[in-house]
Design a protein around this nucleic acid. Structure first.
Lengths: 249, 249
DNA sequence: CGCGACTTTGACAGATGTCAAGGCTTGTGG
DNA sequence: CCACAAGCCTTGACATCTGTCAAAGTCGCG
């Protein structure tokens, strides 16, 4: 049901949209025909800055991208991690003053799609406009879960929950739950994601390792006991909306 | 620049959209003509439940509505507070399985607008489709700030930041920053919003009162020293997007 | 009048932060 | 090949913020 003659990077984007929306072949072809330019980003580079006006949206092709926010005093909070396939700022199409900066956590590759082209295709195909809108809605659900985690769960559960989410999201793009996943995040960055200090992240990583639930080292995540991890995490994947939502609701 | 012959509840909705988007008179009239049904909600009633399929979106006319999430063990986290004028779940138009339940924190009045009508008007006017999408984007920015607060700021700053945000948002709908605002939230609910226990909320409320920054009692919020409060809060209102965003970006 | 929901306060406990030091890996340059 | 620096991970001791428990006060309301 997914067309397979799109250029590979654009296919990733298409595939992601199809995990959240149902689109006809005509609509898929319209998306596949979108122009896009690939770009390599070095590790740690902030490639979209706060408030900057952009004229294109970025889809992650490879690597790990963080959307974040920071306080006056310089503390960082990662709002969302974007893995390959994720449009990191599709919403900029309609709100081009970046609401959140984007940083590559590791060397990454992105696909830049011009807003003009996105607007044109959305205006021509209402279902695509809905798919774009809906994409951000699912993201909001994910951020809401982060808020729940940080506000109401303790450190160990928080970490386990994030790891479960990451596992499932990588699974959606073709990685196995049982194999080790490339997840090149540092403990400092994990702290910025979970609202913890790096030292405490380290303690919790050790706790999960000692409990035999998972290993997180050498830029990889290896789940050793999925159900145990999910239990510690109180993980219920419903919020990830694994089934595409209906066409018009 | 806002048309003034819409029915009053619909005007609130229109006005809110215009704080975030620029719309022509034709587009405004199309919105003003939307059908809507008013409904009264009792205090503490959860009127949209998790996962429920809805066929209408709700705009708050009066009162205070919370969008929330909860853990298995029953802990609650309020993801966003909706004040009069806010569409609480406009996104349901395109994702009708509620991603987050809605609860009235106090006796409230809402306007229910059928999805069918919203979809029709969005399909006919691309700028309206963009305005709907953009509305949620600004909300995402607000939630991202909450995440930053809960993840990285301490309790006193967190509370002060929320109060600043609330003040500015009420200001946008016509309340004065210097007068006392009707803000009928309990300390338990504040805790659910800030990721704190009610006891600690109470301590922080007292601290702000003792510092002469604001008073929060009897269902009202009275700011006594705005700049002092904003300083404690490290408050920068940029994320609230007080200027409507450009038409097409 | 009495109940229930909310607020207030104190004493104490525990989770997480802070500070500090050392080890490990990786890359660079002599 | 070795020395060195930089970044990251690991661990321990201690500090502090926030949670927990408990009790009493206030207010609105039936």
């Amino acid at each position: 049901m997914i067309i397979d003659d799109a250029p590979p990077p654009m296919r990733l984007f298409l595939k992601r949209l199809l995990t959240r929306s149902v689109l006809t072949e005509v609509e898929q072809r319209a998306l596949a025909a979108l122009p896009g330019r690939e770009q390599e980003i070095e590790a740690n580079r902030e490639f979209v800055t706060q408030g900057e006006y952009v004229d294109h949206a970025c889809v992650v092709i490879d690597g790990l991208i963080a959307r974040f926010a920071q306080t006056e005093s310089g503390d960082r909070q990662i709002v969302m991690l974007h893995i390959p396939g994720d449009p990191a700022d599709l919403q900029s199409t309609v709100a081009p003053a970046a609401i959140a900066p984007l940083q590559a956590l590791t060397r990454s590759r992105i696909l830049r799609i011009p807003h003009r082209a996105l607007i044109a295709v959305a205006n021509e195909h209402p279902a695509i406009a809905h798919a774009f809108w809906r994409d951000g809605i699912v993201d909001l659900g994910i951020v809401a879960q982060s808020l729940l985690s940080i506000g109401r769960r303790r450190a160990l559960t928080r970490l386990a929950h994030l790891l479960c989410e990451i596992t499932v999201r990588y699974e959606q793009i073709g990685f196995s739950r049982d194999a080790a996943i490339e997840f090149p995040i540092t403990q400092v960055q994990l702290g910025d994601t979970l609202g913890l200090t790096p030292v405490h992240v380290n303690r919790m990583v050790k706790a999960l390792r000692d409990a035999g639930l998972c290993r997180l080292a050498e830029r990889r995540l290896e789940v050793l006991n999925w159900s145990g991890l999910a239990q510690v995490a109180e993980f219920d994947p419903a919020y990830l909306q694994l089934q595409p939502l209906d066409r018009h609701g």
